[in-house]
């Protein structure tokens, strides 16, 4: 059984999820709520599922294929209409390195 989450665990998960933490107070709040919720989640370990297969999806259909036909799709302007920062035909991104 795992231990309660620490400050470092919260910081690590926030980083993985790319969610900025703004204060120690916020970290404390997440820590308390998450530990409460995870304690409740651990209830599922009471059931033995050794021989049970997981169900990822209800849908019983497997891969569904279609012909690779050329069809009309969205126009360039329509695709670009929601871009917050653009230059001509390009999306402006922050620096990567």
């Amino acid at each position: 059984m795992t231990e309660d989450l620490t400050d470092d665990d919260i910081k690590h998960v926030a980083w993985l999820a790319r969610i900025k933490l703004e204060s120690q107070e916020e970290i404390n709040e997440y820590k308390t709520t998450f530990n409460d919720i995870l304690r409740y989640f651990k209830k599922i370990n009471e059931i033995d599922t050794e021989k049970v297969r997981p169900t990822f999806h209800i849908s019983r259909s497997v891969n569904r294929f279609r012909e690779d036909e050329i069809k009309e799709s969205l126009k360039e302007d329509e695709i670009m209409q929601n871009v917050p920062k653009r230059k001509d035909k390009f999306i402006v991104s922050p620096r990567i390195i």
Binding site: T2, F41, I44, N45, I47, T49, V52, R53, P54, T55, F56, I58
Partner: peptide
Amino acid sequence: MYYLKALKLRTLLI
């Protein structure tokens, strides 16, 4: 511990 276990419980519930 969490995700896969939950998916197995899903099977049982079904």
